Simulated assay, not measured.
Amino acid sequence: MGAGHSHGADDAHAARDHHHGDAGVRAFAWVTLLNLAYTVLEAAYGFATNSLALLSDAVHNLGDVLGLALAWGAATIARRAPTERHTYGWRRATLLSPLANAIVLAGFSGALAWEAVRRFSAPPEVPGIPVMIVAGIGIAVNLGAAKFMHGGHDDLNRRGAFLHLVADAAVSAAAVLAGAGMLAFGWRWLDPLTALLVGAVVAFSAFGLLRDSFAAAMDAVPRGLDPAQVHDFLAAQPGVSAVHHVHIWSLGAGEIAMTAHLIRPGQVDHDAFLDAVVVELDARFGINHPTLQIEHGAGCEHDLHDRAPHH
């Protein structure tokens, strides 16, 4: 015997998913276009002033634009309805996009670091005021774009975009300080140093995103969710004598799935029991796509392969 949601719960989740999906697609659209416009502006001024700090940040932002475009596409694809072949729909597209984004960013960070080290031996003359103005615009653009992404931290796709935009604002702030140092003291080395710091920030953010997105793609338990607590909760339910085959994974875009086998010998109230447990799993753990199999005894053909309680 298995169970998922009641029809009322399904309708509520469908309405919530549609609302969040619309908001997510609009957010990605605005953020992508806004960052693309700023990237073109920053690259133009970087070439005009021969500033590696601006050019490196422009390359960084170009990587973000590509990543945001992937995330935008993934958010759009994730709204497609389930089919007979893709029974969960296309939600997992939002897990693959951050993985590609992280790989692109890692490549850019290496290129930026190489060029920055090369320029330390003979840093060119860079005017400080244009660097400060353009970087200051970057702070406003990135913080404004991050606001569109705020509130979607249960969605790895949006969380990746949000963290990148906040990091970009910090990088732009460093460029403003570098421009001020070059203007006030003539410290040419601040330009390649800033570019090197940009590469370090990109590498750090790319590593974290790569780790989380790879884990999600490999069906790891979502971060912040303790499977031992879920197991203990199920084991403490009325009539449950044992729990096994507990599997928890992300479907993408804030959707968490779970399967579990519950042994309830001699019980007859399974429908009411399942309805109550499903509601509580969502309320306590955010698990909104559970499938629970009720067994009356200990005989399960897969027990030899998966007998551990999954603590």
Rank of each mutant, 00 (worst) to 15 (best):
Thr87Ile: 12
Ala78Glu: 01
Ser121Asn: 07
Gly89Tyr: 07
Val126His: 03
Ala75Phe: 05
Arg92Pro: 00
Ser121Leu: 11
Pro130Gln: 04
Arg79Met: 13
Ala106Val: 13
Leu68Trp: 03
Leu96His: 05
His86Lys: 14
Ala81Glu: 10
Gly110Gln: 14
Ser121Cys: 07
Pro124Arg: 09
Phe108Asn: 10
Trp90Val: 05
Gly89His: 07
Gly89Phe: 10
Ala140Arg: 07
Pro130Asp: 02
Trp90Phe: 15
Gly73Asn: 07
Ala116Val: 11
Val134Cys: 04
Leu99Glu: 01
Trp72Thr: 11
Leu68Ala: 14
Val126Thr: 02
Pro130Ala: 02
Ser121Met: 12
Ala74Tyr: 01
Gly128Val: 06
Phe108Glu: 10
Ala122Thr: 15
Ala116Gly: 09
Glu125Arg: 15
Ile103Met: 15
Leu96Gly: 07
Leu70Ile: 13
Ile133Ser: 02
Pro124Ala: 09
Leu99Met: 07
Ser97Pro: 11
Ala111Gln: 04
Val134Glu: 01
Gly136Phe: 01
Thr87Arg: 13
Gly138Ser: 12
Ala93Ser: 14
Ala78Pro: 00
Thr87Lys: 09
Pro130Arg: 06
Ala135Arg: 01
Arg119Glu: 10
Pro123Trp: 05
Arg80Cys: 02
Arg80Ile: 09
Gly73Leu: 04
Ala69Val: 14
Ile137Pro: 02
Leu70Val: 06
Ser97Trp: 02
Thr76Lys: 12
Arg80Gly: 07
Val134Gly: 00
Leu99Gln: 02
Ala74Asn: 03
Gly107Leu: 08
Gly144Gln: 11
Gly107Ala: 14
Pro130Cys: 01
Ile137Val: 15
Glu115Gln: 15
Ala111Met: 15
Gly107Gln: 12
Gly138Arg: 11
Leu68Gln: 15
Arg85Phe: 11
Ala75Pro: 05
Ala78Tyr: 00
Gly144Cys: 06
Leu99Lys: 01
Glu84Gly: 13
Pro127Trp: 05
Pro98Glu: 02
Pro123Thr: 04
His86Val: 11
Pro124Leu: 12
Phe120Leu: 13
Ala135Pro: 01
Trp90Pro: 03
Leu99Tyr: 06
Ser121Pro: 00
Thr94Ser: 11
Leu112Glu: 06
Arg118Asn: 12
Ile129Met: 09
Ala81Met: 03
Arg80Asn: 12
Thr76Trp: 14
Ser121Ile: 15
Ala140Trp: 09
Val117Trp: 06
Val131Arg: 00
Phe120Cys: 10
Pro127Tyr: 03
Gly89Cys: 10
Pro124Met: 09
Met132Asn: 03
Glu84Asp: 13
Leu112Trp: 10
Ile129Gly: 04
Trp114His: 13
Ala71Phe: 02
Phe108Met: 10
Trp72Asn: 04
Leu99Gly: 00
